[in-house]
Computed example of a mutant assay.
Amino acid sequence: MRPVSDVHKTEEHEESGRPAPDHAAFAQVARGYYPLIVALFTATLIISNICATKGVEFFGDESVMLGPFQILPIVTDGAFFLFPLAYVLGDVLSEVYGFRATRRAIYYGFGALLLTVLCFAVVLRLPAASFYENQEALRSVIGPVPRLVIAGLAGYLVGQLLNSATLVLIKERTKEKHLWARLIGSTVVGEFADTLIFCSIAAGAIGIETWQQFVNYVIVGFLWKTLVEILVMPITYRVIALLKKREPSYAPRSVDPLHA
């Protein structure tokens, strides 16, 4: 007579329609580079939104105006050096994997940011230990983050979707030619929408108070992110070429580019 546990195990597998295994069962991790790029894409987004809580000013001792526009000092936030990477990765995803896969990655990042702001809100409301002396310091650092995350979510969602859609629509016309036009064109459209939306919501959270500072913040952010896209384009070219070569499923698809 078989042990009761074996009988139960056999019954469970008969119900599921699968044979009883001889070893522990595990699911196979999906192969390819897509999960790695999505993870880096999401991490970049989260880290950028935390870094953006710090207002940054270059040439603070200078004051240069061009009519109503402030040229110096240059006003930005602490994420200026990292956030452009999110658009570079978005371009890589769109060029290699298409709009649907990129949109899925954008939604993953959206969910990760929501989880981030929720966790920060919970941490701030937890009662501090009697020996913990940094509650106010912690609040000053991550306290503005919810507003910045709202700004980041709105700008990121609109900007990244526009960036990806623009790239794949241009690619439908140019096919495998003129990659530079797709990369720059999509970045100009996506980054402008992203920067304008983000700066409009986030300006007050990082201490921007005047109209001149705000205009400077928007222009500097947009021009800087676009410039970074151009500067790293040789690297982007190499990464895209490598992925196209290594991904066995990369091939033309006879469907609408926004559904590919």
Score class of each variant (00 low, 15 high):
W224S: 01
L227S: 05
F41N: 06
K245H: 12
L89Y: 08
D194R: 06
K245V: 11
S249N: 14
L118I: 09
G78K: 03
H178L: 13
K54L: 10
F110I: 02
V56S: 15
V117T: 15
A260R: 04
A52F: 13
A112K: 02
D77Q: 01
A202M: 01
F83Q: 07
A43R: 04
V38D: 11
E133I: 11
L148Y: 02
R253I: 15
S130P: 11
V96I: 06
L126G: 07
L167R: 06
Y156E: 12
R103L: 15
L183F: 14
N134M: 09
D77H: 00
I50W: 00
P234C: 14
A52M: 13
E247T: 02
Y33E: 03
I208R: 08
V56Q: 11
G67M: 13
R103W: 12
L179Q: 06
R173M: 14
L72H: 01
A27V: 10
S94I: 07
A27I: 10
A181T: 15
I230E: 02
P144S: 02
R103T: 10
N216I: 01
F214C: 07
F83A: 07
L93T: 07
G78M: 06
S130R: 15
N163D: 12
T44C: 10
R139Y: 07
A193L: 04
S164D: 02
V29Q: 15
P127L: 01
C119T: 13
Q70N: 07
R2G: 06
R104G: 11
S254K: 13
Y34Q: 11
Y132F: 08
F41S: 07
E172W: 15
V123L: 14
A193R: 06
Y87H: 05
E95W: 07
E15F: 15
L89V: 11
I201V: 09
R31D: 01
E247F: 08
R246F: 05
V220Q: 05
Y97A: 07
D61Q: 13
K177D: 15
L93V: 09
V168W: 03
R173K: 15
P21E: 06
I208T: 00
V92R: 11
E136W: 12
G152Y: 03
